[in-house]
Amino acid sequence: MLAALAAVPVLIALAVRLSSRDPGPGQGPPFLDRVSQNGLFIALTGMVVSIPLFLPLTVSVAAGDTIAGEAGHGTLRYLLAAPAGRIRLLAVKYAAAVVFCLAAALSVATAGVLIGSALFDVGPITLLSGDTISVGESLLRLFLVACYVGLSLLGLAAIGLFISTLTEVPVGAMAATAVLAVVSQILDNLPQLEWLHPWLFSHHWLGFADLLRQPISWDSFAANGLLQGGYIVVFCALAYSRFATKDVLS
């Protein structure tokens, strides 16, 4: 799955490299017009393109598989027969999902930087504010962006974990989680539901742009952390209660 994610920036880079016509300013996904001047922007374009669907989809697969996958394989019984305890199993499974979220975001960023530096010039990066920062600092900012995106997905991973405890069919849990991610984004785009927007787990997904301003605006990082923290606490508690009281038959 990480390889599939890494393919996104590679595809964008090849498309820009092979096409004879540069996209004009403001055309296509954000940052695409800068790519031919500076390869580092591939990582950002890849990030913007992956956030709405690819990243949530892979995270849904990873998180939906956690408990339901073991149940589906009939291995959950044996895992619980070992003196590990259900809480510990749940904690380990969620920790694995968290690691996957961060790895997914980092792999998009890393693949973008690598393919960008292979196919295009790399130079000081222009921030949204119009200021220019050095390559070293750009890489640091890209790392921060990847952390931000990884953090943004933790709430979804917690929801996936909870759904995964509800069913024994892993595909069902994955699909339900992915659908929720899409629904949340659709709701976030309806102006009639403005009161709801700050409570949607996908509300801050594109807020990583605040890390590309000069000086960095940490507001959305903090707001995002708080929001995701709320989702993690609520859904991990639900998952624990459901899992602890569940009759494990398979």
């Binding site: 300013p25 403001g26 954000p30 017009d33 800068r34 913007v48 222009t126 949204l128 504010s129 119009g130 594109l206 742009a209 605040d210 301003r213 605006s217």
Partner: peptide, 27 residues
């Protein structure tokens, strides 16, 4: 700095120089 989604518009005044910058248009 007007902070738009994935973009920014800046007005900077320093003495007699005034710069207007839009990241979307890169102009």
């Amino acid at each position: 700095q007007v902070m738009d989604r994935l973009a920014e518009r800046d007005v900077i005044r320093n003495g007699r120089d005034v710069w207007l910058y839009s990241s979307k248009q890169n102009a």
